[in-house]
Simulated assay, not measured.
Amino acid sequence: MGIAIKGRGSRTHLAGRFEVTVSEAMDDGWAPDESEEFAAPRLRTEVRAETARSIISRNKSPDVGFSQSVNPYRGCEHGCSYCFARPSHAYLNLSPGLDFETKLFAKTNAPQLLRKEFSRPGYVPQPIALGINTDAYQPIERKLKLTRQLIEVMLETQHPFSLITKNALVERDIDLLAPLAEKHLVSVHFSVTSLDPHLSARLEPRASAPHARLRAMRRLSDAGIPVGVMVAPVIPWINDAELEAVLEAAHDAGASTAGYVLLRLPLEVAPLFRDWLDTHHPDRATHVMSTINQLRGGKDYNSQFGTRMRGEGVYADLLSNRFKLARKRLGFDAQHSHWPKLDCTRFLRPLPPRVESPQGSLF
């Protein structure tokens, strides 16, 4: 069993797939103990300002429910051990492991870029998913407020959007979200992995505790903002037994829609998650990975559309049936299980940004 780093989901600087040279730790034979000498290092979070060239990402994936998304940050301090976005840090020559959760990038010009994109004559409004690759309400948002500024642009232009988060910080922006909700321009989804605060702290160490997410869900719902729950990810033999309990707690907190996603382990996420299992659940690590392999055609992951979110086989069918029965029993909206329909007809195109002449104004 390895030594976990407090407040971090990973404990290794796993090299990305594009690295030319790779270093590997070697066991020198000294068994670790609880002494200060063997304590895992504490790592500070570094935030770098980034001037983005574009802000709206577009996709044609048939199984995600949205065609365009906006991410104000790269990397995520929540440190979720299973995060499918970790491999994106490899493109920056950084580790999908600890670097992903400690070396973050803030797109400081994101609000200006979004307004500029909306002002284009050919832009056709479609709902935007805010904070999909990395959480738009991760801890650094409290200070930088890029997500809030993006929502202000949405409010100004009456542009529809949805967001999904693990952070109760979303409560801060009820003053913006409520008037948008009145016009069917926003929906908010909370990812809830477990109701057990101890398990949650190991899985997603810097995300809000489960009870805080449920509290935020209730406060948004009371303010008239449509909220939903995503049980994501469902991990065999780790949190799968909680599926019905999470759905019931979310329903009691005001959620009207529900969904779930099976654990996904693309690229570098697979070895990182295996290490997490060996660190926190060594007694069941083999069983967990064996079941995942059965769900993914004998591999750690299968990226095929239609099955990547659900898996295949007996376990996948059982999980699907359990979810459908619980959704029906609790009265969740089955028609809009993931993303409720939002109104695109209210869009107000902003004026294009003013371009100053190099010679300056004559008056």
Rank of each mutant, 00 (worst) to 15 (best):
H13P: 00
E24W: 14
A31H: 01
A31E: 05
E36H: 10
F38N: 13
R48F: 08
T51Y: 12
S54R: 06
S57A: 00
D63M: 11
E77S: 15
C80P: 00
A85W: 01
H89L: 13
L94G: 04
F105H: 04
K107Q: 01
L114D: 04
K116M: 08
S119T: 07
Y123T: 03
Q126R: 05
D135C: 02
A136R: 03
Y137H: 05
K145Q: 13
K145E: 08
R148Y: 08
Q149C: 05
F161G: 06
S162N: 04
I164K: 07
R172N: 07
I174Y: 07
I174V: 14
L176G: 03
P179H: 14
P179A: 15
L180V: 09
A181P: 04
H189V: 11
D196A: 08
D196R: 02
A201G: 01
L203R: 10
A207M: 09
A209P: 02
L214C: 10
L214T: 09
A216M: 06
M217K: 02
D222Q: 15
D222H: 12
P226M: 12
V229M: 06
P236M: 12
L243A: 09
L247Q: 05
E248S: 00
A250S: 00
A250F: 05
H251D: 03
A253L: 01
G254M: 14
S256E: 01
S256M: 02
G259L: 06
A270Q: 11
L272C: 09
R274V: 04
L277S: 04
H280T: 12
P282H: 15
M289Y: 09
T291V: 11
G297T: 03
K299A: 13
S303A: 14
Q304A: 12
F305W: 15
G306E: 12
T307W: 13
T307M: 14
M309P: 03
M309L: 13
A316W: 10
F323L: 05
D333A: 09
T345I: 03
L348H: 08
R354W: 04
V355Q: 14
E356M: 13
G360T: 11
L362Y: 13
F363W: 08
